[in-house]
């Protein structure tokens, strides 16, 4: 009984330690050393543009919805929609050179002026 009381915790501790070490070491032997995603500066710049485009499109949707709910007056809407569309178009143009050339024209993302703006 005394032996079990002393030995059992030691065995348990050893088992837990070994299991933890195996789990910790497993990626070192099993996984491949793949290059990191988005590591290049060019990709970071592209990500910034994509975020900017999404931000501009979301702002357009928001403006449309606020206009519909009466939060934005007709005059404010007319004043704001132009610059927002221009901003979205600029980011789309900036992203354009990196677009795949073999895409059929019809499948390309619509510019904000043609996009169906819904909230």
């Amino acid at each position: 009984m005394m032996v079990a009381l002393i030995v059992l915790p030691v065995i348990l501790t050893a088992a837990v330690t070994i299991a933890a070490m195996l789990y910790v070491a497993s990626p070192l032997v099993r996984e491949s050393e793949l290059p990191r995603a988005s590591s290049a500066d060019g990709l970071a710049r592209r990500l910034e543009l994509v975020e900017e485009r999404d931000r501009a499109l979301a702002a357009l949707k928001e403006l449309e919805f606020d206009h519909r709910t009466g939060k934005v007056s007709d005059r404010d809407y007319r004043e704001q929609v132009g610059p927002l569309r221009r901003r979205a178009a600029e980011t789309l143009r900036a992203l354009e050179p990196a677009a795949k050339p073999d895409r059929p024209a019809g499948s390309r993302r619509a510019t904000p002026s043609r996009a169906k703006v819904r909230s």
């Binding site: 933890a20 990626p27 990191r36």
Partner: peptide, 23 residues
Amino acid sequence: RGRRRLLSSAVNAFVSAFACTVL
């Protein structure tokens, strides 16, 4: 140093630490 596998191992160490804290 940009070592992906070592980072994965560090994540596993943190997860193991949780399991051991539960014990």
